[in-house]
Design a protein around this nucleic acid. Structure first.
Lengths: 191, 191
DNA sequence: GTAGTTAGTGATTGAGTACTAACTTACGTC
DNA sequence: GACGTAAGTTAGTACTCAATCACTAACTAC
């Protein structure tokens, strides 16, 4: 048994919960599964967090923050075309290296609606705020071009979905995205 | 008590389950909730379907089929720019009129990954096949332009996500999409 | 009208789940 | 080295949920 400070434990709970929630979503993940992955007893989670919902919220928030940080760091000092390419590459790397982060993103979006319908707007506000920050983080290095930013986010969402559905990288469905990347890098190729 | 043929009942179960699964996802929806909405006893669902999973599968399949039909019918006889506009409008109408269909789509994508991870590839194959059909259905009237089709799907996914997160229609996040629609309709405006 | 079939229900079961309460073990500190 | 505190556990509760079983009510064909 390795003892940790409550803060450190909370941290590892968030990481473990991210993996679990990414796979099973909110309702498909038991607190026991999270506890097992952390290596701690299940009731102890309720000392670290007030409830299951709070864990999910913490994970969702963390996920958005880190996604933002990826875009921020990858585009640092770059502008326009170069920033776009750098962010796209960073995103692609993130997806291939940590696919669960991608799944967690989808889970977050899906869970928001249920929460809103159930009258819980706290979760929705947090996610929308996080998304706006993400949007602005991308918006700035792209020179404030709204169309470009929207398009970047749109392709990102398509990638999320296709990857989530389990299309293998060599599937023809990806062709249009590779194509668009090429076009983006060399606009003269566009017809 | 209104008696129906098993086939008719299955049909109303699918419709009811679509609403329920759209809100709660697979694990967040109880068979009792579905049965209540249908107006039938919970155990009877298991006469009509072999299990809960089968109901979800039927709903997901139906959802993809109907989405495909919307694109097919709206673009009938049209090509290129006109077809794109018609499909976009049909999609927008669908979303505002039946938001649950949109949510169900997201739920489907999210659930696939869990099924795949659990070793159940039947669901994944069905969804990927359905998506490919959807893709081809859009691809054809767009003149076989891969980039255009991919872009269309990407914006669709972004719309799904933003709507799912509960951004109100007047929120500035939508601006880029309205903009892109304008550009698409009148390419000369694009810089 | 009665025999066979199909639609549908009530009661139940067994597994799982979020969360609580009471207890125990390790750590720092004076 | 005792004492207070913070980390962590074991046992248990109240509840939900998918699925089964045995049964009843309605339609249909003869």
């Amino acid at each position: 048994m390795v003892r940790m400070s409550a803060e450190e434990r909370r941290e590892s709970v968030i990481r473990a919960a991210m993996s679990e929630f990414a796979r099973g979503g909110y309702h498909g993940t038991s607190t026991e599964a999270i506890a097992k992955r952390v290596g701690v007893s299940q009731p102890y989670l309720f000392r670290l967090f007030p409830g299951k919902k709070a864990i999910f919220l913490a994970v969702a928030e963390r996920c958005l923050q880190e996604m933002r940080r990826v875009f921020e760091e990858s585009s640092e000092g770059l502008h326009g075309e170069e920033a776009l390419r750098a962010m796209a590459e960073a995103y692609a790397r993130l997806i291939t290296e940590q696919p669960e982060r991608l799944q967690m993103q989808l889970q977050t979006y899906v869970t928001v609606a249920a929460a809103e319908a159930a009258g819980d707007h706290e979760f929705g506000e947090m996610v929308r705020k996080g998304w706006m920050e993400l949007w602005d983080t991308v918006h700035l290095p792209l020179g404030g071009d709204i169309g470009e930013t929207t398009s970047f986010m749109a392709y990102g969402m398509l990638i999320n979905t296709l990857a989530g559905m389990g299309f293998p990288p060599e599937h023809r469905i990806w062709e249009g995205l590779y194509l668009s990347a090429r076009v983006k890098r060399n606009p003269d190729d566009a017809s």
